[in-house]
Simulated assay, not measured.
Amino acid sequence: MTQQTEATAAIWLAKSAFDQLTAQLEDMKGPQRQAIVAEISAARDEGDLKENGGYHAAREAQGRLEGEIQALEALLRKADTTEPADDGVVAPGKVITYKYDGDDDDEAEAFLLASIEMKPFYDGDVFSPAAPIGQALLGHKAGETVEFTGPTGRAITVQVLSAALFNA
């Protein structure tokens, strides 16, 4: 059995998010890339490239765009759009509702367990399955109490209230 590393681990994305990011990638590789090439060409036609601010700005924009294209392509290659089972078990692609254990006054809180790339698609907190709370809660069900070590080194105990499917 091979163990996935952070660099090779699948990234859960809602199908709608995957489709939006794919469309964004196509726009970047098509119209955006063509616009920058046109800017570079126009600036090149102005003459001396050593002192041509427009040319250098367009080349920098081209470099940024190409970097964004590569990052988005890598993300989409690792994307997993499989909808998780509607079984109440904490898993990527679910909205986890929880409360801190032992304090009846605490209100329930919720987060989407997914890659940070889902942040634009969810109006709330998004935690990675690799985050301390994500790792601790994976596989647990509503009603279970889980203790884990927080980022500050302090022990945190939470009660899972629900693990519901994310609806984009």
Rank of each mutant, 00 (worst) to 15 (best):
M1C: 10
T2F: 06
Q4N: 08
T5Y: 05
A9V: 03
A14I: 01
F18N: 02
A23D: 12
L25G: 03
D27R: 08
D27F: 01
K29M: 10
G30W: 00
Q34C: 03
I36S: 02
A42Q: 13
E46I: 01
K50M: 11
E51L: 04
H56R: 12
R59G: 05
R64E: 15
E66R: 04
E66F: 01
G67N: 07
L72K: 13
E73L: 05
R77E: 06
K78S: 15
A79S: 10
T82G: 10
P84H: 02
A85M: 12
D87R: 15
V89R: 02
P92Q: 05
G93H: 06
D103Y: 15
D103L: 10
D105H: 12
E107K: 15
A110E: 08
L113T: 08
A114I: 03
S115A: 14
F121G: 08
D123A: 15
D125W: 03
V126T: 11
P129F: 01
I133T: 04
H140Q: 13
K141L: 07
T145Y: 03
V146D: 10
E147P: 04
G150Y: 02
T152K: 05
T152R: 03
G153S: 06
R154Y: 00
T157D: 08
S162Q: 11
L165S: 12
A168I: 06
